[in-house]
Design a protein around this nucleic acid. Structure first.
Lengths: 128, 128
DNA sequence: CCAAAATCAATAATGATTACTATTATTGTT
DNA sequence: AACAATAATAGTAATCATTATTGATTTTGG
């Protein structure tokens, strides 16, 4: 995996964005620096960075991939109204991987807890 | 909400399929009964059934929705090689929703734990 | 039986992602 | 600095998943 300005900037963009950006968000931000960058480049590098563990890829019910610079232990909260993804600081028992591994017979690499619900913002909107 | 043959069959198909079928799997199975059924019908009804809580919609990193007839408490294991989804019987503390709700300020409806790793089958294949 | 509402099939349209190709950049080595 | 091998890129086409549209058909409640 060689150096490229594109990849470096993509990593920086994700790392400076708390809001779990989608591929498209990263693409829009990157175009401000490299106007003729290709969308395929963004896809390729985000997936590479996720595979190498420098960022994290998050599933979400809206059918689009989100990326998270925070590779430390934490979980996610996805609003079913606005599809935003929030971090939830983790304090759940860390031995769940081991426990689950015993139950499934495969090799477990990681886990994520995704909470679904309605976020603070959307709750406010509903009341108005 | 239960008077169309299509919806009834879709529900039965999911309920009789342990393997967390995708929209397309359900579509293929349904066509054996109703050859000219529309894919849109499958999408609409699977989402309706998931909203009404009769089945469960599962997110997965491969970008396709999976559906699960098992609406009881359990978690999921997704193989990063074959993308199959397995159930993991749940015995994790149920108070995580409450705990997370305090932390995020929104309203939490449910949560899912998805474990990622390499499943038993794929481990075997690797060795050969 | 009739009218309103719900559902349907078929297909078009959209949105996300991947594949492909010719070109350019990076790397380690002379 | 020039070289070849490799990796990455831009641009675009193709693919895959999903949603929207439309007009016909079916169900429901009176």
């Amino acid at each position: 995996m060689n150096y490229s300005r594109q990849r470096e900037l993509i990593l920086k963009i994700v790392q400076s964005d708390m809001s779990h950006p989608t591929v498209d968000s990263v693409y829009q931000a990157l175009r401000k620096e490299i106007p003729n960058v290709s969308l395929a480049t963004v896809y390729r590098n985000l997936n590479l960075l996720a595979e190498s563990g420098e960022i994290r890829k998050i599933e979400s019910l809206d059918g689009t991939a989100h990326f998270d610079f925070n590779t430390g232990k934490h979980y996610h909260f996805i609003c079913i109204h606005c599809n935003k993804v929030y971090d939830i600081p983790c304090d759940v028992a860390p031995e769940v991987d081991k426990k689950a591994e015993e139950l499934c017979g495969g090799k477990i690499i990681s886990h994520d807890i995704s909470f679904q619900g309605i976020c603070h913002e959307c709750l406010k909107l509903k009341k108005n």
